[in-house]
Protein backbone atom coordinates (compact mmCIF):
# COMPACT_ATOMS: atom_id res chain seq x y z
CA UNK A 1 0.00 0.00 0.00
CA UNK A 2 1.41 3.41 -0.95
CA UNK A 3 2.07 6.23 1.48
CA UNK A 4 -0.84 8.28 0.17
CA UNK A 5 -3.17 5.33 0.67
CA UNK A 6 -2.01 4.89 4.25
CA UNK A 7 -2.63 8.58 4.90
CA UNK A 8 -6.11 8.29 3.34
CA UNK A 9 -6.80 5.27 5.53
CA UNK A 10 -5.58 7.15 8.60
CA UNK A 11 -7.88 10.07 7.78
CA UNK A 12 -10.79 7.65 7.42
CA UNK A 13 -10.07 5.97 10.76
CA UNK A 14 -9.60 9.31 12.53
CA UNK A 15 -12.77 10.67 10.96
CA UNK A 16 -14.69 7.56 12.01
CA UNK A 17 -13.36 7.73 15.58
CA UNK A 18 -14.13 11.44 16.06
CA UNK A 19 -17.56 11.09 14.45
CA UNK A 20 -18.43 8.08 16.61
CA UNK A 21 -17.35 9.76 19.84
CA UNK A 22 -19.28 12.96 19.11
CA UNK A 23 -22.36 11.10 17.94
CA UNK A 24 -22.49 8.92 21.07
CA UNK A 25 -22.31 12.04 23.20
CA UNK A 26 -24.95 13.99 21.31
CA UNK A 27 -27.31 11.14 20.49
CA UNK A 28 -27.61 9.71 23.99
CA UNK A 29 -29.87 12.53 25.24
CA UNK A 30 -31.68 12.68 21.89
CA UNK A 31 -32.30 8.91 21.87
CA UNK A 32 -33.41 9.06 25.51
CA UNK A 33 -35.96 11.72 24.65
CA UNK A 34 -37.16 9.73 21.63
CA UNK A 35 -37.27 6.43 23.49
CA UNK A 36 -38.82 7.45 26.79
CA UNK A 37 -40.52 10.81 26.27
CA UNK A 38 -44.12 11.41 25.37
CA UNK A 39 -43.86 14.63 23.37
CA UNK A 40 -45.92 14.85 20.20
CA UNK A 41 -42.80 16.11 18.46
CA UNK A 42 -41.27 12.65 18.66
CA UNK A 43 -42.73 11.44 15.34
CA UNK A 44 -41.41 14.33 13.20
CA UNK A 45 -38.05 14.23 14.98
CA UNK A 46 -37.82 10.48 14.42
CA UNK A 47 -38.52 11.05 10.74
CA UNK A 48 -35.86 13.77 10.44
CA UNK A 49 -33.31 11.61 12.24
CA UNK A 50 -33.98 8.76 9.82
CA UNK A 51 -33.73 10.95 6.69
CA UNK A 52 -30.03 10.19 6.08
CA UNK A 53 -30.99 6.53 5.72
CA UNK A 54 -33.03 7.17 2.60
CA UNK A 55 -31.56 10.29 1.00
CA UNK A 56 -28.72 9.93 -1.53
CA UNK A 57 -25.46 10.97 0.18
CA UNK A 58 -24.98 13.50 -2.60
CA UNK A 59 -28.13 15.31 -1.49
CA UNK A 60 -26.78 15.62 2.06
CA UNK A 61 -23.37 16.66 0.79
CA UNK A 62 -24.88 19.21 -1.56
CA UNK A 63 -26.94 20.93 1.13
CA UNK A 64 -24.07 20.84 3.57
CA UNK A 65 -21.90 22.52 0.97
CA UNK A 66 -24.59 25.12 0.36
CA UNK A 67 -24.94 25.90 4.07
CA UNK A 68 -21.38 25.50 5.25
CA UNK A 69 -19.51 26.70 2.15
CA UNK A 70 -17.78 30.09 2.14
CA UNK A 71 -20.83 31.60 0.40
CA UNK A 72 -23.41 29.71 2.48
CA UNK A 73 -25.29 31.38 5.34
CA UNK A 74 -23.46 29.49 8.07
CA UNK A 75 -20.11 29.66 6.32
CA UNK A 76 -20.45 33.41 5.93
CA UNK A 77 -21.49 33.88 9.54
CA UNK A 78 -18.49 31.87 10.66
CA UNK A 79 -16.15 33.92 8.50
CA UNK A 80 -17.55 37.09 10.11
CA UNK A 81 -16.50 35.88 13.57
CA UNK A 82 -13.09 34.91 12.25
CA UNK A 83 -13.62 31.17 11.82
CA UNK A 84 -12.90 29.59 8.45
CA UNK A 85 -15.77 27.86 6.68
CA UNK A 86 -15.70 24.16 7.53
CA UNK A 87 -16.15 23.20 3.88
CA UNK A 88 -13.16 21.35 2.37
CA UNK A 89 -11.66 20.71 5.83
CA UNK A 90 -11.55 17.87 8.33
CA UNK A 91 -14.18 19.69 10.43
CA UNK A 92 -16.46 19.68 7.41
CA UNK A 93 -15.90 15.94 7.02
CA UNK A 94 -16.83 15.40 10.67
CA UNK A 95 -20.03 17.47 10.38
CA UNK A 96 -21.05 15.66 7.20
CA UNK A 97 -20.25 12.24 8.65
CA UNK A 98 -22.18 12.97 11.82
CA UNK A 99 -25.31 13.79 9.87
CA UNK A 100 -24.79 10.82 7.56
CA UNK A 101 -24.32 8.33 10.44
CA UNK A 102 -26.84 9.91 12.84
CA UNK A 103 -29.58 7.28 12.43
CA UNK A 104 -27.09 4.47 12.96
CA UNK A 105 -26.44 5.77 16.47
CA UNK A 106 -29.89 7.06 17.40
CA UNK A 107 -31.83 3.95 16.46
CA UNK A 108 -29.96 1.32 18.50
CA UNK A 109 -29.78 3.66 21.49
CA UNK A 110 -33.45 4.57 21.24
CA UNK A 111 -34.42 0.89 21.01
CA UNK A 112 -32.22 0.03 23.99
CA UNK A 113 -33.76 2.81 26.10
CA UNK A 114 -37.27 1.83 25.03
CA UNK A 115 -36.56 -1.78 25.96
CA UNK A 116 -35.55 -0.81 29.48
CA UNK A 117 -39.08 0.06 30.50
CA UNK A 118 -39.85 2.43 33.35
CA UNK A 119 -39.96 -0.13 36.17
CA UNK A 120 -36.21 -0.63 36.76
CA UNK A 121 -35.81 3.13 36.95
CA UNK A 122 -38.68 3.47 39.41
CA UNK A 123 -37.14 0.74 41.55
CA UNK A 124 -33.81 2.58 41.53
CA UNK A 125 -35.54 5.85 42.46
CA UNK A 126 -37.27 4.24 45.44
CA UNK A 127 -33.83 2.96 46.49
CA UNK A 128 -32.61 6.59 46.69
CA UNK A 129 -30.78 6.75 43.36
CA UNK A 130 -30.76 10.25 41.85
CA UNK A 131 -31.48 10.66 38.11
CA UNK A 132 -27.79 10.77 37.20
CA UNK A 133 -27.08 7.83 39.51
CA UNK A 134 -29.89 5.90 37.81
CA UNK A 135 -28.41 6.65 34.41
CA UNK A 136 -24.97 5.40 35.41
CA UNK A 137 -26.00 2.42 37.54
CA UNK A 138 -29.01 1.17 35.60
CA UNK A 139 -29.39 2.70 32.14
CA UNK A 140 -25.77 2.41 30.98
CA UNK A 141 -25.16 -1.22 32.01
CA UNK A 142 -28.55 -2.38 30.73
CA UNK A 143 -28.06 -0.55 27.42
CA UNK A 144 -24.46 -1.60 26.91
CA UNK A 145 -25.32 -3.65 23.85
CA UNK A 146 -27.16 -0.73 22.33
CA UNK A 147 -24.12 1.47 22.88
CA UNK A 148 -21.78 -1.15 21.39
CA UNK A 149 -24.02 -1.56 18.34
CA UNK A 150 -24.34 2.20 17.91
CA UNK A 151 -20.58 2.73 18.20
CA UNK A 152 -19.65 -0.07 15.78
CA UNK A 153 -22.25 0.92 13.20
CA UNK A 154 -21.31 4.60 13.37
CA UNK A 155 -17.62 3.76 12.99
CA UNK A 156 -18.07 1.26 10.16
CA UNK A 157 -20.62 3.36 8.36
CA UNK A 158 -18.45 6.49 8.52
CA UNK A 159 -15.49 4.47 7.28
CA UNK A 160 -17.52 3.45 4.26
CA UNK A 161 -19.09 6.77 3.26
CA UNK A 162 -18.29 8.32 -0.05
CA UNK A 163 -20.77 10.80 -1.44
CA UNK A 164 -20.97 13.16 1.52
CA UNK A 165 -17.23 13.36 2.11
CA UNK A 166 -16.60 13.91 -1.58
CA UNK A 167 -19.05 16.83 -1.72
CA UNK A 168 -18.13 18.55 1.54
CA UNK A 169 -14.46 17.52 1.67
CA UNK A 170 -13.47 18.13 -1.90
CA UNK A 171 -11.00 15.23 -2.28
CA UNK A 172 -7.86 17.05 -1.10
CA UNK A 173 -5.09 14.42 -0.70
CA UNK A 174 -3.58 14.39 2.76
CA UNK A 175 -6.40 16.50 4.21
CA UNK A 176 -9.86 15.42 3.17
CA UNK A 177 -9.19 12.45 0.91
CA UNK A 178 -10.56 9.39 2.71
CA UNK A 179 -9.88 5.75 1.86
CA UNK A 180 -13.15 5.37 -0.05
CA UNK A 181 -12.30 8.37 -2.26
CA UNK A 182 -8.77 7.08 -2.78
CA UNK A 183 -10.23 3.79 -4.03
CA UNK A 184 -12.40 5.70 -6.48
CA UNK A 185 -9.37 7.64 -7.74
CA UNK A 186 -7.37 4.43 -8.19
CA UNK A 187 -10.17 2.80 -10.12
CA UNK A 188 -10.61 5.89 -12.31
CA UNK A 189 -6.93 5.78 -13.23
CA UNK A 190 -7.06 2.00 -13.75
CA UNK A 191 -4.73 1.26 -10.80
CA UNK A 192 -6.70 -1.87 -9.96
CA UNK A 193 -3.98 -3.38 -7.76
CA UNK A 194 -3.92 -0.35 -5.44
CA UNK A 195 -7.72 -0.13 -5.45
CA UNK A 196 -7.88 -3.81 -4.54
CA UNK A 197 -5.44 -3.54 -1.61
CA UNK A 198 -7.29 -0.60 -0.07
CA UNK A 199 -10.70 -2.15 -0.72
CA UNK A 200 -9.70 -5.48 0.82
CA UNK A 201 -8.42 -3.62 3.90
CA UNK A 202 -11.79 -1.92 4.31
CA UNK A 203 -13.64 -5.22 3.89
CA UNK A 204 -11.54 -6.84 6.64
CA UNK A 205 -11.99 -3.90 9.03
CA UNK A 206 -15.75 -3.80 8.43
CA UNK A 207 -16.04 -7.56 8.93
CA UNK A 208 -14.12 -7.50 12.20
CA UNK A 209 -16.20 -4.60 13.51
CA UNK A 210 -19.50 -6.28 12.72
CA UNK A 211 -18.20 -9.53 14.18
CA UNK A 212 -17.78 -7.85 17.57
CA UNK A 213 -21.45 -6.88 17.55
CA UNK A 214 -22.78 -10.27 16.58
CA UNK A 215 -20.35 -12.19 18.79
CA UNK A 216 -21.50 -10.18 21.79
CA UNK A 217 -25.12 -11.23 21.16
CA UNK A 218 -24.50 -14.84 22.14
CA UNK A 219 -25.74 -15.90 25.56
CA UNK A 220 -26.92 -12.46 26.51
CA UNK A 221 -30.55 -13.53 26.37
CA UNK A 222 -33.23 -10.89 26.12
CA UNK A 223 -31.50 -8.36 28.33
CA UNK A 224 -31.61 -5.73 25.66
CA UNK A 225 -33.62 -5.89 22.51
CA UNK A 226 -31.44 -6.71 19.53
CA UNK A 227 -30.95 -3.80 17.24
CA UNK A 228 -33.44 -3.69 14.43
CA UNK A 229 -34.45 -1.56 11.54
CA UNK A 230 -37.80 0.13 11.93
Amino acid sequence: MGGDDLIALAISVRLAAVTTALLLLLCTPLAWWLGTGSSRWRAPVNAVVSLPLVLPPTVLGFYLLVFLGPQGPLGRALTLVGVASPAFSFTGLVIGSMIYSLPFVVQPLRDAFEGLGTRVLEVAATLSASPWDRFVSVVLPLSSRGFLTAAVLAFAHTLGEFGVVLMIGGNIPGRTQTASIAIFNHAETLEYGAANRLSATLVVIAFLLLLTVYASTRGRGARVQPWRWN
Binding site: R119, V120, E122, V123, A124, A125, T126, L127, S128, A129, S130, P131, D133, R134, V138
Partner: peptide, 16 residues
Protein backbone atom coordinates in the same frame (compact mmCIF):
# COMPACT_ATOMS: atom_id res chain seq x y z
CA UNK B 1 -39.04 9.71 44.97
CA UNK B 2 -35.32 9.26 45.52
CA UNK B 3 -35.33 11.82 48.34
CA UNK B 4 -38.41 10.56 50.22
CA UNK B 5 -36.59 7.79 52.14
CA UNK B 6 -39.16 5.20 51.23
CA UNK B 7 -38.98 1.55 50.31
CA UNK B 8 -41.28 0.22 47.61
CA UNK B 9 -42.11 -3.37 46.81
CA UNK B 10 -43.84 -3.66 43.45
CA UNK B 11 -46.51 -6.16 42.57
CA UNK B 12 -44.23 -8.13 40.30
CA UNK B 13 -40.71 -8.68 41.60
CA UNK B 14 -38.56 -6.19 39.70
CA UNK B 15 -34.94 -7.12 40.27
CA UNK B 16 -32.05 -5.46 38.48
Amino acid sequence: AHRRSIGYVFQEPSLF
